[in-house]
């Protein structure tokens, strides 16, 4: 599965990439929302976007809104430092929201594996 990872902290982004590449996924990195949009425009093989929530200029939610407005229906997973329950409840179009903590390492690969399974019935 081709995945675009968006995080303004390159270290955090690369950690997520390391985690998913371990599962055999193909990961690209973007450091902000603008770069993410450019990447998505340039590469239509991307099947999933995993984005940090809090980023300067364009937040993860802004990015999601931008994508949905332009008719993009790619699954979109939000990563956040806070409890994601509220955001998940209030944001239609969000596939999942996960908290950045020690459990992320266990949860994210399972989630992505499920999505990859769903993508190829």
């Amino acid at each position: 599965m081709q995945i675009l990872i968006v995080d303004d902290d390159p270290l955090a982004g690369e950690l997520v990439a390391a985690l998913l590449e371990e599962q055999g996924h193909d990961c690209r990195l973007a450091e902000n929302g603008i770069e993410a949009l450019e990447r998505l425009a340039a590469d239509d093989g991307i099947e999933l976007v995993i984005s940090d929530l809090n980023m300067p200029l364009v937040s993860g939610l802004d990015l999601l809104a931008e994508l949905r407005e332009s008719g993009q229906t790619l699954p979109f997973v939000l990563l956040t430092g806070d409890d994601p329950a509220d955001i998940l409840a209030q944001t239609p179009g969000l596939t999942a929201a996960l908290m950045k903590d020690a459990a992320l390492e266990a949860v994210l690969p399972v989630l992505v594996a499920k999505m990859a399974g769903a993508a190829r019935p």
Binding site: L11, N54, L79, D101, A102
Partner: peptide, 15 residues
């Protein structure tokens, strides 16, 4: 706020 939020998130990922 952004600086600390980023530190919080990233350090969280690194446990």
């Amino acid at each position: 706020e952004l600086a600390f939020h980023t530190i919080k998130g990233s350090s969280g990922s690194f446990a």
